[in-house]
Design a protein around this nucleic acid. Structure first.
Length: 257
DNA sequence: ATGGTAGCCTTGCTA
């Protein structure tokens, strides 16, 4: 069995103590990180390697940045999503580990929707759709985890009316997400827990975590070869309640050996 | 009531 976690840490330097604590207690085999907010040369590699993880990361100064941590060798790492060679934003890394093709995804937020950020989000999703089509053609077990910045349905939003026109919930955003699902990938949490209201992100503002005013935007998408082996998918709320927490909490899935 | 918080550095931008 392989345990895979995804976590938007909102700055790996600000979160290094929380991350190391959680890696020590949860001990996932593979970790997909988003929002490193650092370049590769300032990534805190040694502390993470000391816990037994290999590291593959693609970073940039101040914004974005994604990584794959694994207790097994990481092979054939690719640090960008195909389709827009001039796109410099570090939002995608993909590699093979534990016999799985895994990716860490930081999908653009897209707000405000009246700016060029929203069409960038939709273009990025079209690129992802095209790449998922290629990955599925390979007939490998594929696990695509990350911060998708998409609430797939109103069940995934504490205030659906308030978020109706938000880039995370707009019909065009949800449709682009469904187009990817309709290629034949399984969204692990919802497949295993239909009807369960659970969130992976709570705004820092106010007391959103205490009142459970959250969003479910961190997801795992699995190819059929991985979905056939899916055993569990859970959200670990504990890290969000700690000192110096990220605004996201880790989501974990397990894949049978 | 266009706020509030966090993290980065660009003392504004991104989320």
């Amino acid at each position: 069995m392989v345990t895979i976690a995804t976590w938007n840490v909102n700055s790996i330097k600000a979160r290094i103590v929380n991350l190391l604590d959680w890696l020590g207690e949860a001990g996932p085999d593979v970790v997909l990180l988003q929002e490193l907010k650092c370049t590769e040369d300032t990534f805190p590699r040694l502390e993470i390697e000391a816990l037994g993880y290999r590291v593959a990361a693609v970073g940039q100064k101040s914004y974005n940045g994604v990584a794959i941590l694994s207790k097994a060798p990481i092979e054939q790492a690719v640090g960008r999503l195909p389709g827009e060679p001039e796109d410099e934003q570090a939002r995608y890394i993909e590699a093979t580990t534990f016999g799985l093709r895994v990716a860490s995804i930081y999908l653009p937020n897209g707000n405000p929707t009246n700016s060029d950020k929203y069409p960038y989000k939709l273009r990025w999703m079209a690129r992802l759709e095209s790449h998922v089509r290629d990955l599925l053609a390979s007939e490998q077990p594929v696990v695509l985890g990350g911060d998708y910045n998409i609430c797939p349905a109103d069940l995934d939003v504490h205030d659906p009316a308030g978020f109706r026109n938000d880039a995370l919930c707009r019909p065009e955003s949800r449709q682009a997400f469904r187009r990817i699902l309709n290629l034949g990938v399984t969204e692990a949490f919802r497949a295993l827990h239909p009807g369960r209201r659970a969130y992976s992100y709570w705004d820092y503002v106010g007391k959103a975590f205490d009142t459970d005013d959250g969003l479910r935007i961190d997801h795992f998408l699995l190819s059929p070869q991985a979905a056939d082996r899916l055993e569990s998918c859970e959200i670990d709320k504990r890290p969000r309640g700690r000192e110096k927490a990220s605004d996201h909490t880790p989501v974990t899935c397990t894949i049978a050996a």
